[in-house]
């Protein structure tokens, strides 16, 4: 199998939106009116996205916003972080940039994730974590609450620690990879 061979999925399993988002029918999306998908984002089966845990107060509140070319892996849980501030309990919005891939089985409760971030499989990203642009989290990493992960760094282990810096070219590499993944991810042709 080469890097550009297509990844097929059954057409009936995914819902495709006008902006090219592909959302599995087997994903659990609570409170969809509070979730924004940037376009060309894939949400795999078994993922749980909690848009219902919103900030209290009147009007429309965005709970989770995802950028373009993101991938939420199988069985991921995306849930906004919570805390009490000045004695009032609240959930706070989660913002994720463009070209972010999150591996299967990861639990994400981050406050902000920048652009071009790669998160491995089975990671736990604690509450109010801030991940800057082009960072990478290795598989099975546990990031404790309130961690700030600097740009262009690899974190790994339990608790997740800095391992090494990434090259300057990471942005282009990740961008190419996420775009290629999206083009590879296509529905099964009917004539097969």
């Amino acid at each position: 199998m080469t890097m550009d061979s297509p990844i097929y999925y059954a057409k009936s399993e995914f819902i495709e939106t006008d902006t090219g988002n592909k959302v599995s029918r087997r994903a659990v999306i609570a409170g969809p009116q509070n979730i924004i998908l940037g376009g060309k984002t894939i949400i795999s089966h078994g993922a749980i996205i909690r848009g219902d845990l919103r900030r209290t107060g009147p009007g429309h509140a965005v709970v989770i916003s995802l950028g373009r070319y993101c991938l939420i892996g199988e069985g991921c849980v995306m849930r906004p972080p919570y805390k009490t501030y000045r004695g009032a309990f609240n959930y706070y919005p989660m913002k994720i940039g463009d070209h972010v891939h999150i591996g299967a089985g990861s639990v994400v409760e981050a406050a902000t994730i920048g652009n071009h971030v790669e998160i491995g499989k089975n990671c736990v990203i604690g509450k109010f974590t801030i991940i800057k642009d082009c960072a990478k989290i290795a598989d099975d990493t546990i990031i404790p609450s309130n961690t700030v992960i600097p740009a262009l760094s690899i974190f790994s282990g339990s608790p997740g620690r800095f391992v090494e810096d990434l090259p300057e070219s990471t942005q282009e590499m990740v961008e190419a990879h996420t775009k290629q993944y999206y083009t590879r991810f296509q529905s099964q042709p009917t004539d097969r």
Binding site: D52, T56, Y82, T84, F89, N90, Y91
Partner: peptide
Amino acid sequence: ADLRRKHVEYLKEMLPKFN
């Protein structure tokens, strides 16, 4: 304990609205 109590109270109010 206070955080836990407030968390429960919040969920009691919000979860039935969406689920």
